[in-house]
Structures are given as structure tokens and as C-alpha cells.
Amino acid sequence: MEEVVIQADKLTKKFGDFTATDAITFQVRKGEIFGFLGANGAGKTTAMRMLCGLSVPTSGEAKVAGFDIYKETESIKKNIGYMSQKFSLYEDLTVVENIRFFGGIYGLNNEQIKNKTEELIERLGLTSVRKELVVDLPLGWKQKLSFSIAIIHQPKIVFLDEPTGGVDPLTRRQFWELIYEAAHNGITVFVTTHYMDEAEYCDRLSIMVDGKIKALDTPKNLKMQFEAESMDEVFYKLARQATRAE
């Protein structure tokens, strides 16, 4: 039996009379790449905030990395990593400064930070630009760096909020190879996206429509279930039923 690292049970969040996430139930297993899909406004961000301990649910239960999301948010935060396309790195700091800063934030000691810095720079091939400001790096490099920093403290789970986008197909794949590697090393990857090609890379997917999880399975099974050629098609068939906008 594989270890369950995220267990959500009827998790609900209401804002006034608006139900952002409506009794969602799912499990994510250790080392899995779990895709969390939905159109804008479907409730993805709200759900993820609750799992990260940033927002208190209205009702329902959930455990993340074995910790309760009501009472043990501090322990959760120590065991997760987070990366989003919108904010991940300080653009006016250099590559090395960013790594050191986040290493410190995540509670690594100086020795660890020093080793990690060298290891990361070496592995991502950033030696020539280590002293350059992040703002001057190509987008693809930034994404790879920011993912590596998100897992610098070897969290149990890493949350990726629409991590890629706007990069060429080759760079995108290099990024996903990093994700595979992390999953291979036992880090669970929880990724929200509305890029359907990214969805195909996940082990399992859930698709949210109007605050509810409308489908949850492997990409292959979902395609079979919805008699669709691609995930894009599956998503289209489901999201078309949506009644609420952003």
C-alpha cells in the first residue's frame, strides 16, 4: 500500500453565499505527479490555499504530509514547497543570492546552503550566470531555477501553481524532466494548470468545474471515459458544462 500524502475529505470553502470549493474529496499518493485542473474561477486556487495552510476551510477535513490543515499549519508549511509563475524569485537578486535567501527561509543551515547552492548551480548548468541578476535570465532558466529552489529543503510535497507557460516546447520539456526527477526521488508533485499538454504529463488528474471535482483518473482512463482523443477534448467536454464565470 502506497503512502497517502494528501488526503482531502469533503473540503469546502465558502465566501458569503458563494461556494468556491464544494466538498472536494481526493487522495494524492507519495511520489505521484497529481494534476489539478480547472478553468479560471473553478476553485483551484482556493483549494490549493487551503492545502498549503494559507486559508481555513469552511468545513471538511484534510491532511497534508500527515498534518491537519486546521491545527498544524506550521508543520505543513515546513514540509511543502511552493512555486508559481507569478512569484517565485527576486528578479533584482542574483542567482546565488536567490538560492541562499530561500535556503535560509526554508531553515537550512549555512553548511547545507553552501552545498546546495553549488549542487544546484552545477546541475542546472548555471555556472556562467551565477552572479547575474535573475531578471536577465531567459524565462526557461528562471522556471527551472525557481522549481529547484522550491524543493531545496526536500519537502514531502511541492505545490506548483501554473508553473510554466510561454516557453518553447524544448525548454518546457526540460522543466518537466526536473519534475519527473523530483517525483522519482519521492517528492509528491501537486500541479495546477490550464495547459492541457502539461496535464498529459501527470500520473493522475482531477478536473474541477464550478467548485466540484468532476473527474479524477489517469489521463489515459479519462480519455477513454470521455471518448476523447486528447486531454484538451476531455477538458472541453467537462468545462463546457460550467455555469459560473470568473
Binding site: A39, N40, G166, M196, F235, Y236, A239, R240, A242
Partner: peptide
């Protein structure tokens, strides 16, 4: 025109 817009 379609960047950031949902697949539908």
C-alpha cells in the same frame, strides 16, 4: 489573443 484564456 488566447494566452491565459481557458481551453473552451
Amino acid at each position: 489573443p488566447t494566452t491565459g484564456v481557458d481551453p473552451v
